[in-house]
Write a protein that binds this DNA or RNA. Structure first.
Length: 426
RNA sequence: CGGGGCGUGGUGUAACGGCUAACAUGCCUCUUUUGGGAAGAGGUGACUCCGGGUUCGAAUCCCGGCGCCCCGACCA
């Protein structure tokens, strides 16, 4: 994409009402726009990054047998009454509205109910199980207090996967596969070394749930990291215990000693639950086994917030100059920056290079604007694309091995490392 | 929902109850410039969040509302 076509502008200063680093930088760089507290638009650069994160999650969900669909945000109250989650006294974060004829509607806070209802039409026999379906869908939650930029909003994208199993053993087997899939996602996003599978309250459904918590001071949770697991090295799922459930019983259950736990601040980037038959029983999702007996389906749910992950990556990797994206989630792979030249030779060469890279499928943001070098460099640092290719009269004068093609300066945003490479080698 | 703070051009700030609401930045025009947010000149842009009130006079004081941020509580 040519930067001259990108309508977003960068800013020197963040709005004074944004304190969170993620929101300050994402707004300054033109990735997001705040509509109101806890409600953010994703602008072209932000949407690209968000979609990269979504793409990685999608691949990992597909790899464990997940099948994607998309459920509605508008919800009929009936099924939520069936599970006793409609009453404001039970669930106080609903956004509710009405049809013109007076029928109550809610904006979905989650999708256990509608999906369980839907699956009744498709799961009848033990032969129809197991199933795993998921979606990327906007959730609406009327939080009393939005905070931390895009990390905790009232409208946000969520990946939610729901697994339907014949029995506890089958469900547990999937649960373990999903844990690994989650670890894979965090590794690919570059935050794996700071993300812990954290024992947390199972709420109404089971003794424990597992939160995936990424260490950052910007987080709102306090967790106790198990150092023993870290010492076990690579490949091991790192574990922690949420402060909310830390007690002797939990330590005994997990077989770990209090002395091996270290307190840290973290942000919850994913949460997985064993739901049991709470929803299948309430809504009548049953299957017939080999003997024709009706059995409620065992369910489990797997949530993950792409937007919150994006904010977490910003918090973890940004530096004083701006955003720093890992390759896997950067909006573009290369930021091609053409500096001013008097005779048009530079922009001519940059145009050619842009076409060449783009034709090869490399995602390039091409800064073809009429701006000074300093301004372009500052913007480039702020936007945080992993590789910056600078092309100028100076670099064109440096010949490659062919003797005529000229060079570009390649700078790595994260490491700051600079090298001069012949254009012919790119 | 309790506590605290804050609402002034697009953005960041200033202005004793008193002159045409100032400065920086952004944006526009021209000239010069061009490897780390360039320089000069000229311009554009604000019912000072909304509604009441006090006063000769309100951005400023008072009351009410709305919005935003932070701390806490909450967070299937």
């Amino acid at each position: 994409m040519k930067q001259s076509q990108l309508f977003t502008k960068t800013r020197h200063e963040a709005p004074k009402d944004e304190v969170a680093k993620n929101a300050q930088l994402l707004i300054r760089a033109g990735y997001v726009n705040k509509e109101m507290a806890g409600v953010y638009d994703f602008l072209p650069l932000g949407l690209r990054t968000l979609n990269k994160i979504v793409g990685i999650i999608r691949e990992e969900m597909n790899a464990i047998g997940g099948v994607e669909l998309s459920l509605t945000a508008l919800q009929d109250k009936k099924i939520w009454e069936a599970t006793d989650r409609w009453d404001d006294k039970k669930v106080d974060i609903w956004f509710k509205t009405k049809l013109q004829n007076g029928t109550d509607l809610g904006l979905a806070i989650t999708h256990e109910e509608p999906l369980t209802q839907l699956m009744k039409d498709h799961i009848r026999s033990f032969r129809d199980l197991p199933r795993a379906v998921y979606q990327f869908q906007t959730k609406f939650r009327n939080e009393v207090r939005a905070k931390s930029g895009i990390m905790r909003g009232r409208e946000f994208l969520m990946k939610d996967l729901y697994a339907f199993s014949r029995d506890v053993a089958e469900r547990d087997a999937f649960y373990e596969k999903a844990q690994q899939a989650y670890v894979n996602v965090f590794n690919r996003l570059g935050i794996g070394d700071k993300t812990y599978m954290t024992f947390a309250s199972g709420g109404l459904f089971s003794k424990y749930s597992h939160e995936f918590q990424t260490l950052t001071e910007a987080g709102e949770d306090t967790i106790y990291v198990y150092e023993g697991a870290e010492k076990n090295g690579q490949g091991q799922i790192k574990i922690a215990v949420n402060k909310e459930v830390l007690n002797d019983e939990v330590l005994t259950d997990l077989g770990i000693k209090r002395a091996d736990l270290v307190e840290k601040k973290a942000v919850e980037v994913g949460n997985i639950f064993k739901l049991g038959t709470r929803f299948s029983e309430a809504l009548g999702l049953v299957y017939q086994d080999e003997k024709g007996k009706s059995i409620p389906v065992e369910m489990s749910s797997y949530g993950m917030g792409p937007g919150r992950l994006m904010g977490t990556i910003v918090e973890l990797m940004a530096d004083e100059k701006g955003l720093v994206w890992p390759e896997a989630v950067a909006p573009f792979a290369v930021h091609l920056v053409a500096l001013f030249d008097k005779n048009g030779k530079v922009s001519e060469a940059a145009d050619v290079l842009y076409e060449k890279l783009t034709a090869r499928g490399i995602e390039v943001l091409y800064d073809d604007r009429d701006a000074t070098a300093g301004e372009k460099f500052s913007d480039s640092d702020l936007i945080g694309i992993p590789l910056r290719y600078v092309i100028s009269e100076k670099t064109l004068a440096k010949n490659g091995s062919e003797g005529d093609a000229g060079s570009v300066e390649v700078k790595n945003r994260a490491t700051g490392k600079v090298e001069i490479r012949p254009i012919s080698s790119l």
